[in-house]
Amino acid sequence: MEMSPNYHPPKEFAISAKDFSVFYGSFHAVKNVNMDFERGKVTAIIGPSGCGKSTFLRCINRMNDLVENCRTEGLLAFDGIDIYHKRLDVAELRRRIGMVFQRPNPFPKSIYENVAYGVRLKGVRKKAILDEIVENSLRRAALWDEVKDRLSSNALGMSGGQQQRLCIARALAIKPCVLLMDEPCSALDPKSTARIEDLIAELSGEYTIAIVTHNMQQAARVSDNTAFFYEGRLVEFGTTSQIFTNPKNKATNDYITGRFG
């Protein structure tokens, strides 16, 4: 991204939203959100279905560009750069901000090719370098030991949990700064879920991670900060320990204790 920052948040914040709104046609899906994602920390976004949490997350790497009638207002900045600036290179933004989705979506290619794909797009051709990046990424995603002997097998033959870790490895291969995770464990069994959660813990510090989850315990386990969204609004944002022991807002308390939602 060649653009110079046009907004200067404190350095400790990787992503900042200022009065940020999203509309689907006339429907105001995300309403005037103000929040900052701490650099190197895990931020969980929770809330009932339809509260705007996924919409908000997907805006961070412009996934909603393809949605018809979707428009935004206010500012969403990544390292001080307006994510919705007209001249922004969206492909470059997505290289910096990787994303992992609800269902693992590997390419119908070999395990190796899945990880090398984005790196090749960046222009890396040398096999030795590709090999190194593939191995490192698979190791970072805690998958290497399971797949090192079958790198040329089709990725679609892996288990769901492995596929999801492969998608994480694929995202890590192009060295992003931020990882967005939209319910990354909802299609996984408890053991695979635990592996992904361990992985999130390992990756935090190095990466800024934003995770949308319906699983409250998961938010409590993996995140440093938690944001509670309700009906498009950011109701409460605080450290995860504060939100889960002493939420200041009654709606937050009622939601996380299962009284509604």
Partner: peptide, 9 residues
């Protein structure tokens, strides 16, 4: 139940 917030307290 792994209660949280007011329930935990």
């Amino acid at each position: 139940h792994q209660p949280v917030a007011s329930d935990l307290r």
